[in-house]
Design a protein around this nucleic acid. Structure first.
Lengths: 257, 257
DNA sequence: CGATTACTTGAGCTACATCAACCGTGGTGG
DNA sequence: CCACCACGGTTGATGTAGCTCAAGTAATCG
């Protein structure tokens, strides 16, 4: 709702150099001049409505996408028709990296709310990365960061119980919101309980019960999509202090020494 | 036992161009001349004994490693001291990709048996990739492939039960062995039941029981480390046909159209 | 304003973990 | 060379976290 016309129409055309998210996204560690070259290949598409697919499973891979505002879930449908969510993506994050290897998207991406994205045609990006070493490095770093996040999440799925998973999930979202300049204690979930359950490998009922229990225990305040973190430390304790490091982007900010 | 002195001592010094694994590893899509340049930066270390660490969690990241022979498990130790295995690596696979993003290894890597590796100093590799576009692309593809494998595995952890997990695991190992020119129906597990259980997020007892049940049902033949797949299709059915695609490297082979 | 969909709450069931005992095997030292 | 030990693996018995089924309530949508 808000945060929607923050980006003016001018901002819409004049891109990366002015983007609020540039220090989360591709332009890190790239000179102003090279950012302008990046700009030239980026195209901004009109916002996706909630439920709209950015790409479908099996689609030809032609471009990476960076989220400008809104949020997206990526998921796959298995042979038996069940959906499994791989990730939720927030502004500044790059989608489609898993499609580079075989030229088609192994998972679909659907907007969870009104969402706008930047399109980065891969062949042009690749060529530019060949010329701009900083961009090449940044691409590798982003992919590596993603690998990290996946590994952390695998760890959670393999060894944490339901309450640890949800606690970790909430903290992860919280800190990712924080990184984007929003409140890290109070935010809206753009995904349904069903999606959360699916993502965490739990039943919807379990997630629902945990939300009410966390609330009863004074850890959070939750009413439908609105969530407020009341006792961050208790949640972190519960999540085995995996809340912070589970975060995809956290580590990136302080490591540029 | 066998398959050990396949690599001669000559093969040990003259590298990538002669390597049996080159079509699984970095050199794909690179001209002969550029492979020689790659060769120059690769250094071959003496074999690691079983249980020896290639690197430890938190170590400074200076190089990627490619497995030449043997196998390696990578894992992290969480705050509470529990080990969680992220992956098992076979010959031709690259380790250390998750360390690019913040310059230190988020996970440790330990040899499961006598294992030899090639060391690829990252700064030199990075520079070479800047010059050789094919190498840059191949690096991205390998990372993307890894992302894929992680996502598939997350799906398994989040939505499959014990028997589906183990069936998928066995098929995955089988086809990875096949890709390397070994039998894909008969092979040795280099990891313990404990490791398998840890990796799959199960208890050792459960894994053990499943092994005996699979054997009783005539799906496999298993004695200690030795495994023989008897009914591939039945296992695939059980794994929700996730056995094949779960594989990290499968898709790479037929897509170079 | 009714109807569909998202979420919550309760009751019972089950897959798997945990605890405990036992077995085979490979290594070591007497 | 055998006896013993330690360790990885197997098997059984029991407990429980979380799933499933079921029904109710609240929000959303046409």
């Amino acid at each position: 709702m808000e945060s929607f016309n923050v980006i003016t129409l001018q901002g819409f055309s004049r891109a990366c150099a002015d983007c609020q998210l540039q220090d989360l996204c591709l332009p890190i560690g790239i000179s102003r001049k090279d950012v302008d070259r990046l700009d030239e290949i980026v195209s901004r598409k009109r916002p996706l409505q909630r439920g709209t697919a950015l790409y479908n499973q099996g689609d030809h891979f032609g471009a990476l996408f960076a989220i400008r505002s809104g949020s997206i879930k990526s998921f796959t449908i298995s042979d038996d028709g069940r959906e499994q969510i791989n990730a939720f993506h927030l502004p500044g994050e790059i989608l489609g990296l898993d499609a580079i290897s075989d030229g088609s998207h192994p998972s679909a991406a659907v907007a969870l709310e009104t969402t706008s994205v930047c399109e980065l045609p891969f062949d042009r990006l690749h060529t530019l990365a060949h010329e701009v070493k900083g961009l090449q490095h940044q691409l590798l770093r982003i992919m590596s960061r993603e690998l990290n996040a996946d590994e952390r999440f695998m760890r959670i799925l393999a060894s944490r119980n339901a309450e640890e998973r949800l606690a970790g999930f909430l903290l992860n979202l919280a800190s990712r919101h924080g990184l984007r300049g929003y409140s890290s204690t109070e935010f809206n979930l753009s995904m349904s309980r069903h999606d959360i359950a699916n993502y965490l490998g739990l039943a919807v009922e379990t997630v629902s019960r945990l939300f009410t229990r966390f609330q009863q225990d004074g850890l959070i305040e939750a009413h439908r999509k609105a969530v407020k973190i009341l006792q961050r430390d208790a949640l972190a304790e519960m999540a085995g202090n995996l809340g912070n490091p589970m975060n995809q982007a956290d580590n990136r900010s302080q490591e540029s020494s």
